[in-house]
């Protein structure tokens, strides 16, 4: 299959991710949208690596997966901390900070 098919899918996933981050109000769903964006980049890396026959891109993906896991750990911990304090995680209700 030509490179453009993979890149098209990757760009599509990235766009869905952006829309999810901007439009959804539950931090867990926003979180999933963020993962989608990271994986869109991963798909692009693998597609380019196969196209150019250079291994760098595939190795990059391993690093990204590892980093994403570290981010999940921190992100979920923050969400749990906030849930314990206010028993809700709706982003629209997070309005302590304004000016």
């Amino acid at each position: 299959m030509p490179l453009m098919y993979y890149l098209g899918l990757s760009a599509f996933m990235f766009t869905i991710g952006i829309l999810g981050v901007l439009l959804r109000r539950n931090p867990l769903v926003v979180f999933m949208a963020l993962e989608l964006m990271f994986n869109a980049a991963n798909l692009a890396f693998v597609a380019f690596a196969a196209f150019h026959k250079v291994l760098d891109g595939e190795i990059f993906v391993f690093f990204v997966i590892t980093t994403a896991a570290a981010e999940v750990a921190i992100g979920l911990a923050l969400i749990i901390a906030i849930f314990r304090t206010k028993h809700s995680v709706d982003i629209d209700q997070m309005s302590e900070l304004k000016g």
Binding site: A41, F48, H52
Partner: peptide, 10 residues
Amino acid sequence: VLYGIALVFG
């Protein structure tokens, strides 16, 4: 940043 890096790599 990551997607930008992917495109530069590509």
